[in-house]
Amino acid sequence: METNVKAIELRDLWRRYKTNGDTAARERLVVAYSPLVKYVAGRMASGLPAHVEEADLISYGLVGLISAIERFDLEREIKFETYAITRIKGAIIDELRSLDWVPRSVRAKAREIERANTKLEHQLQRAPTDEEMSAELKVTVEEFQESLLQISNSSVAALDELWTVGDSSGDAVSLLDTLTDDSAPDPADVMDQTDLKDRVADAIARLPEREKLVVALYYYENLTLREIGEVLGVTESRISQLHTKAVLRLRSRLIESEQH
């Protein structure tokens, strides 16, 4: 009963704001949906360095929530929560990017690993091992794995940041949201998103089994890296390395497929 009452109240707030431009209704919508911001900020904070404050992420995310409320079209066949989460993530990522807190050396190392992975996959026709990657990069296996940890500690939203597709309103839609969203898509986006989903699905299918499992548990089952480590019986830092390798492999494959 309480849920129904809340749904009716929200519909009334949406109508008052979108029809009459009622700013009080808009403010109440921000309050009503603010738990979404805390959820997204908490999820992202778990993968960021300790000096990044969750309170800061929440403030960045509120900008995205307000923008989502202002731009949301009630006629769209998509749940507001799905739309808002994408914009909240985007606002947080944009702010972190503008602060430019990821060292250039780490970004350069990530690109170097992507290029080496692409080259070796062509040569070997399979995913290269840590030893093969280390040899290609002319570093020890330990140095390669340390690089993966540095990249992991500096990453922002991982897969959510890597691939976005434009929707008909010009907004960026997180690919992972399109993969897991059950609501009806806009017809104009179906072909592009289907092609992109197929390419990602193919890239994930070609990952080594443990990396594939980490991706599934992290992005689809919403487990933390620590929880995945407990499931697989290895340390959190090892899971962090596997996750980063998977992300860099997927990124290099998608970039390559876009160029062909």
Rank of each mutant, 00 (worst) to 15 (best):
M1S: 15
E2N: 14
I8W: 10
E9M: 10
W14F: 12
Y17E: 05
Y17W: 11
A24S: 14
A25E: 08
K38N: 10
A41C: 08
G42N: 09
R43I: 00
R43L: 02
A45W: 06
G47A: 14
E54H: 03
E54T: 05
L57I: 06
I58V: 15
I58G: 00
L62T: 12
L62D: 10
L65D: 12
L65G: 10
L65Q: 06
L65K: 01
I69E: 00
E70Q: 12
E75W: 07
E75Y: 09
E77R: 13
I78H: 07
K79Q: 09
I85T: 12
R87H: 13
R87E: 13
K89P: 01
I92Q: 04
L96P: 04
R97Q: 05
R97V: 07
W101C: 10
V102S: 01
V102T: 10
S105V: 11
R107G: 14
K109C: 12
A110Y: 03
R111T: 12
I113H: 01
E114P: 05
A116F: 00
N117E: 11
T118G: 00
T118Y: 06
L120T: 04
L120M: 09
Q123P: 00
R126Y: 05
D130N: 12
E132I: 13
S134A: 15
S134I: 03
A135G: 06
E136A: 15
L137C: 04
V139C: 14
T140A: 11
E146M: 06
Q150L: 04
Q150E: 15
V156G: 04
L159S: 07
D160G: 02
D160R: 06
E161I: 01
V165C: 01
V165W: 00
D167T: 09
S169H: 12
G170I: 10
G170S: 08
A172F: 11
V173L: 02
V173F: 00
S174H: 03
L175V: 02
L176C: 02
L176H: 05
D177Q: 10
T180I: 05
D181K: 13
S183L: 01
P185A: 11
D186N: 14
P187Q: 07
A188R: 15
D192K: 11
Q193S: 11
L196K: 03
L196W: 03
A205E: 03
A205F: 12
K212M: 06
L213R: 14
Y218G: 03
R226A: 08
E230P: 01
E230L: 07
T235K: 06
E236F: 11
S240L: 01
T244K: 08
K245S: 12
V247L: 13
R249A: 08
S252Y: 07
L254M: 13
L254R: 02
E256W: 08
E258G: 07
